[in-house]
Simulated assay, not measured.
Amino acid sequence: MNKPAAFPEDAPASLQKRIRTEIEAKILSGEWGPGYRIPFEHELTVQYGCSRMTVSKAISALAEAGLVTRRRRAGSFVARPKVHSAVLDIPDLRSEIEGRGEAYAFKLVACTPRAPKAKNAEEIDLARGGELLALRGVHFANGRPFAIEDRLISLVAAPLARDADFAAQPPGAWLLEHIPWTEAENRISALGADTESANLLAIAPGTACLAVERRTWRAGEGVTKVRQLFPGEAYDLVARFGPSRG
């Protein structure tokens, strides 16, 4: 490992932040994937020319954010993403549709920046003092409507989303590429399609649909909230389990 130039003018607090930021960037970019062992603390003290305490505080901050796990005598490792619910994946609908041998397409219906709704706690929390990007689109399989997607993106967490071309690249795929998630929550429910949704899905109003609502976070900060609505016969969700461990 090449040792970079020392930064003696850096105060311990600013150097601690720099160490955390650089490690966090490697994790969130995917360069260091889940399970990767980050350099030992004594290696980082040499790399950054600082005290063991400064490194330890930086790693502790990453652990508190859920990005790394510390194992006694083994070191620190990139944490595996946390998923709340039985469905342990965030599907890429394009890959799923093309995996069925069908042609995929996406139509962007609306894309508008807006403030969070005044009495909606989830939206206010997601916005974090900024705006939300509200999107609606339809996924198609072989020319048939496959799912409606209603999505909110935090423009604080993903400022580049404001200028992204979501007509060319669906928002879910764009987010997976640009803002890797570290924690996700799924909610699954069944409901009848309202008139507007039924028109977009080319089904009769009241037809049974599967609604998948998902929220994702990066290092504890909200990134997006999305609801995908599927005609009941078009989609299913499968999860494999093992016994829980004490």
Results as ranks from 00 to 15, higher is better:
244 S>A: 15
99 G>K: 14
153 I>M: 04
153 I>D: 01
244 S>H: 14
42 H>F: 11
183 E>A: 14
164 A>W: 01
85 S>T: 09
208 A>W: 04
176 L>N: 08
111 C>T: 05
64 E>N: 04
105 A>G: 07
14 S>M: 15
77 F>L: 13
131 E>C: 02
129 G>H: 07
91 P>L: 00
203 I>E: 03
70 R>T: 13
204 A>T: 15
70 R>F: 01
174 W>D: 04
26 K>W: 00
164 A>E: 09
63 A>L: 04
14 S>P: 02
25 A>P: 00
87 V>D: 08
13 A>L: 14
241 F>E: 12
16 Q>H: 03
184 A>Q: 10
180 P>K: 12
202 A>G: 05
57 K>N: 10
60 S>H: 08
112 T>Y: 09
181 W>F: 07
112 T>W: 08
242 G>D: 12
173 A>R: 06
21 T>S: 12
113 P>L: 10
136 R>F: 01
131 E>S: 11
67 L>A: 10
210 L>R: 12
231 P>Q: 05
139 H>T: 03
3 K>I: 15
213 E>C: 07
218 R>M: 02
43 E>D: 09
212 V>P: 00
112 T>I: 13
175 L>K: 01
104 Y>N: 07
116 P>Q: 11
84 H>A: 04
226 V>S: 09
207 T>S: 15
11 A>V: 10
135 L>S: 00
38 I>M: 13
77 F>H: 05
30 G>D: 07
174 W>F: 08
105 A>F: 06
150 D>Q: 10
166 F>E: 07
76 S>R: 00
139 H>D: 05
98 E>G: 08
241 F>N: 05
241 F>Y: 11
62 L>A: 04
236 D>W: 11
20 R>M: 14
100 R>G: 10
214 R>Y: 06
57 K>S: 07
82 K>A: 13
101 G>F: 05
15 L>S: 02
214 R>M: 07
239 A>P: 00
69 T>D: 12
50 C>E: 01
109 V>H: 02
67 L>N: 06
16 Q>F: 00
8 P>Q: 07
27 I>V: 13
21 T>Q: 12
145 P>F: 01
4 P>Q: 11
119 K>R: 14
31 E>W: 00
239 A>Y: 03
97 I>P: 00
149 E>I: 02
119 K>S: 11
61 A>M: 10
205 P>M: 09
46 V>T: 11
245 R>P: 05
89 D>L: 13
21 T>G: 09
56 S>Q: 15
75 G>P: 05
197 S>M: 09
16 Q>G: 07
169 Q>A: 10
186 N>G: 01
92 D>Y: 05
215 R>F: 03
54 T>L: 08
198 A>W: 00
79 A>D: 09
32 W>M: 05
242 G>N: 07
180 P>Q: 11
224 T>N: 06
102 E>Q: 15
135 L>Y: 00
10 D>F: 11
38 I>N: 04
137 G>I: 03
234 A>K: 03
175 L>W: 01
22 E>Y: 11
94 R>A: 01
107 K>S: 13
23 I>H: 03
191 L>R: 09
49 G>I: 08
43 E>F: 06
119 K>D: 12
197 S>C: 10
126 L>D: 03
227 R>N: 13
40 F>S: 13
3 K>T: 15
59 I>C: 06
157 A>R: 00
177 E>Q: 13
189 S>T: 06
173 A>G: 04
7 F>C: 14
21 T>H: 07
216 T>V: 14
135 L>E: 03
34 P>G: 14
8 P>H: 06
118 A>W: 11
194 D>C: 02
